[in-house]
Simulated scan of single mutants.
Amino acid sequence: MRTLLNLIWLIFSGLWLAIGYAVAGLICCILIITIPWGIACFRIAVYALWPFGYTVRDRHDAGVASALGNVIWLIVAGIWITIGHIVAGVTFCLTIIGIPFGIAHFKMIPVSLMPLGKEIVSTDAPAAYPHYRW
């Protein structure tokens, strides 16, 4: 089921989102000082291509630099990208068939709002559930 959802997502949202995030990543890497945001954009672009079966979690080794970088990102781009995900998510949720895709847009909000100090992990991996202990 995840594969089918990912293929439909790729056609209707994923490819366009991934291209947008990749272009933003290239621009950030060209400007050199913004390379950390460029790397985060590339990570989000891969997540935007195939979101079903993956989740975003906080990295516990992220420090003050990540927090400061997230504040700068939030002011410059994070709010606008998040508004775009909210609008797309609500639009998809207007139809019953689009609800999973709207939820996928809502899942992308935390990583697009504050991308530094986050990692994308498979939902099948035990690391995706930090509260679960083996």
Rank of each mutant, 00 (worst) to 15 (best):
I44R: 01
A128Q: 05
G98E: 14
M114K: 07
M108E: 05
M108P: 06
T91Q: 01
S13A: 11
L7W: 02
M114I: 06
V76K: 12
W16E: 08
A67G: 10
T91C: 08
A24P: 15
C41P: 11
L10P: 08
I33W: 04
L7E: 07
I83L: 08
M1H: 01
F92K: 10
I35S: 11
P110K: 05
G38A: 14
G89K: 01
I8L: 10
E119L: 06
P100H: 01
L7H: 02
G38C: 09
M1Q: 02
V90C: 05
I120S: 03
G98V: 03
R2M: 09
G63V: 13
T95F: 02
I19W: 09
Y21N: 12
N70H: 08
A104F: 02
L10M: 06
L68W: 10
H105R: 06
P100M: 00
L5R: 07
M114H: 02
I103A: 03
V64Q: 12
P36Q: 13
F42W: 04
I83V: 12
T91A: 12
N6D: 14
A88T: 13
W16A: 11
D124R: 11
I75T: 09
Y129K: 03
I97S: 04
Y129D: 08
M108Q: 01
R133H: 13
Y132Q: 12
G14H: 04
K107L: 11
D58E: 13
R2P: 15
M1E: 09
I33M: 08
T3V: 05
T123E: 14
L49Y: 03
R43G: 11
K118Q: 14
L7K: 06
I72E: 05
L31Q: 14
A125F: 00
G102I: 09
T95C: 07
W37R: 13
A65E: 09
I35C: 14
E119D: 15
W73F: 08
V90A: 14
I83W: 02
L26W: 00
M108S: 02
P100G: 07
R59C: 12
M114W: 07
V121A: 01
L17A: 05
H85M: 10
L7D: 10
L94I: 00
L15P: 12
E119I: 10
